[in-house]
Nucleic acid binder design. Structure first.
Length: 491
RNA sequence: GGGCGCGUAGCUCAAUUGGCAGAGCAAGAGACUCUUAAUCUCUAGGUUCGGGGUUCGACUCCCCGCGCGCUCACCA
């Protein structure tokens, strides 16, 4: 039966206990880390190792056992590093000999002995002592093909991380990227803060929120869709440079580039505008790319992305004009633009307004072509209720989005700080919501009150961490860079 | 949510027109003192995702459900 292997493991667990050994001891004693051993002794040859006669004690998970009768090899794995242990049966005590027969692939063991090098050149712990420090009750996925089943890779990520080096590499790269991001912002005197995830009113983006319930107050509350409105309150409160790295939640569909829960870095800088944010995000990502790759280039989906140098800017109108022949600024109202689009034989989708149709055209025709880092500018005001109007054209705002690899990685603007204009934008959003736009921004009186107390001119920036990591890791799907992507309950 | 596809041993995968459900690895027994996908011999291992139907006979065809993937929509 399928349970035969689990049964065999359970029997060996019982045998350990019967021999008076604890299969899950609390302490394993002082150890040398496998990475340390490799670092110090990988270069030593047979003679040097024999002369040194280094006694080491190590621990790790058993990834493979190869038995040759009187000689047994075991591959140990600890924190991403492998080291081989060997056991010469004639030299072992009866206790160790008996214990050796009770070790399964997947168990955590401690081994102790002298370092030597095999004929094939493998650095090896010639173990004389052995202990099981944590028993594994299930077989590990097959070592050669690894774990391929996508569903199981996500549901049981611990197995994926164990047997697929790529999964581990992505997780490590992600962590290093975030560390580099923090270091960059800290270096520019930004203060890292934390704002509420659970909010009485959501805001800061155009998205449907998750709603939950607070039992004690018998009130519905929302999971945040962005950090924006709280971070701005901090700027109003006198923190001129703040940032937050956290998760946002948007009650929307899942795709290669979208997950309902995703990581975002948002930062705000007083006395800066969106042009300053351009400089900031460019330097920031160049810093991260350099920290992770050591250079300026990244291979992503069969292409080389060059992060070095100054990144080009593209007005959203110019991008659309170039790709479709439609001048969205010449077709200045919804009906005219829609007619132009249909006349050109292009898809107008079901965009209900001029701004959303512009957005539709852009995401369909321009966005996929923006592989190299590109700043897209001059967004329609109705898509940006929290951004300052452009000085030159009141239909547009001082905003850019950064595109890399055909994906939006960042979004920034000169933050609206005129409370009257802000109230007007909220009113407009309220009308859109009444007209059926489920993603329209809600009117937030508390936020307006804060802004009425005076908010300095401020530049704001949001960076999608998951997507940045996707590019850095050449991951095809957002789920690959999330350790635990959302899965429906199985079984 | 729509369309298309997938679900077989612990893992990775086969199974011809609808005709006895198999292999490699893992597991169990044995041999083997330099392997690292060790090798060799033998053994065991199945509710073919779940439920219903058609049929003499269903892994295979039909219906319903669950999960996953791709894609479109929603969405930055």
């Amino acid at each position: 039966m399928s349970e035969s292997e689990r049964k065999a493991r359970a029997e060996r667990l019982a045998a350990l206990r019967a021999a008076g050994l604890d299969p899950y001891p609390a302490r394993v004693g002082p150890l040398l880390r496998l990475a340390e051993i490799r670092r110090h002794h990988d270069a030593k040859d047979v003679a040097a190792l024999d002369a040194a006669a280094l006694q080491v004690r190590v621990a790790g998970r058993v990834l493979a056992i190869r038995s040759f009768g009187k000689l047994v090899f075991m591959t140990l794995f600890e924190d991403g590093v492998q080291l081989q242990a060997s056991f010469r049966k004639p030299e072992l005590s009866p206790e160790v000999l008996a214990l050796l027969a009770l070790v399964d692939v997947g168990d955590f063991v401690r081994a102790e002995g002298v370092l030597w090098r095999t004929r094939t050149g493998e650095l090896t712990v010639g173990a004389r002592a052995l202990a099981v420090v944590a028993k594994c009750l299930h077989p590990l996925p097959e070592k050669w093909h690894g774990l391929v089943d996508v569903e199981r890779r996500y549901r049981q990520r611990y197995l994926d991380l164990l047997v697929n080096p790529e999964a581990r590499r992505i997780a490590v790269t992600r962590s290093r990227s975030v560390t580099a991001l923090r270091a960059f912002l800290d270096g520019r005197s930004f203060l890292e803060v934390e704002t509420p995830v659970l909010q009485p009113l959501y805001g800061g983006a155009a998205a449907r929120p998750f709603v939950t319930h607070y039992d004690v107050y018998d009130q519905d509350v929302y999971l945040r869709i962005s950090d924006e409105l709280y971070l701005k309150r901090l700027v109003i409160g006198g923190f001129d440079r703040v940032y937050e790295i956290g998760h946002n939640f948007r009650n929307e569909g899942v795709s290669r580039k979208h997950n309902p829960e995703f990581a975002m870095m948002e930062c705000y800088q007083a006395y800066a505008d969106y042009r300053d944010m351009m400089e900031l995000v460019q330097a920031m990502l160049q810093h991260v790319v350099s920290a992770v790759t050591g250079g300026t280039r990244v291979a992503y989906r069969e292409q080389q992305i060059e992060f070095g140098g100054a990144w080009p800017q593209l007005a959203i109108r110019d991008g659309i004009l170039e790709r479709t022949g439609v001048d969205v600024l010449a077709a200045a109202d919804f009906a005219t633009l829609r007619a132009r689009v249909i006349e050109k034989g292009l898809d107008a989708g079901d965009a209900p307004t001029w701004g959303q149709l512009v957005d539709h055209l852009f995401s369909l025709h321009v966005e996929p072509t923006l592989v190299q880092p590109t700043f897209v500018t001059d967004y329609p005001v109705e898509l940006s209720p929290l951004a300052k109007r452009s000085l030159t054209d009141p239909r547009l705002v001082e905003r850019f989005e950064l595109f890399v690899g055909g994906m939006e990685l960042a979004n920034a603007f000169s933050e609206l700080n005129d409370p009257a204009d802000q109230r007007g934008r909220f009113e407009e959003q309220r009308r859109a919501k009444a007209a059926g736009d489920a993603e329209a921004h809600p009117l937030d009186e508390e936020f307006l009150l804060a802004m009425e107390h005076g908010m300095p001119p401020t530049g704001g920036l949001g960076v999608g961490i998951d997507r940045v990591v996707m590019v850095l890791c050449d991951a095809a799907h957002l789920r690959e860079v999330l350790l635990f992507p959302y899965m429906k309950p199985g079984e």
